[in-house]
Amino acid sequence: MRLKLKKTITAQEADALINKYYDGTTTNTEEERLRRFLRQEGLPSKYRAEQAIFGYFEQQAAGKGRAVRLVTVCRAAAMVAVVTLAGAALYKFAKPDYKAVAYVDGRQITDKKTVKTLAENTLDNVLAADNTIEEQLGQFAEIQF
């Protein structure tokens, strides 16, 4: 018994599939058959648009996947880092006994109640930044498609 290897589709079959493709009625399997046909070298120039289009989509499918938009995520992360650093600069443990101290505009503040209020305000800023990141990530998830 001889096994027949599946050949690539003929030009006639490809033309029929291309018409179906533009009608929006090809299945994924048929498109894969068409893709294999179009990958061949030396095809007539009438297929150049389809070669370009199919090649483009194949490249996009291989490249994008579920890639996150790194630029904007980094920007959001940088914002949190800036706020956190700014918050950390407001209060600093100057002595080994860890007495709470805050610095505002270069002025040292040691009043416990004031230092506590300043620390709480800083944490609020960090939490607001977290919400911004969440918002932005939500938007990116929406548009990364």
Partner: peptide, 21 residues
């Protein structure tokens, strides 16, 4: 309905690509 939009999109892409290329 999906096929209709898909068909329009694909035909437009081909048409515009050929015009430019």
């Amino acid at each position: 309905a999906v096929r209709m939009n898909l068909s329009r999109a694909r035909r437009r892409v081909r048409e515009e690509y050929l015009k430019i290329s």
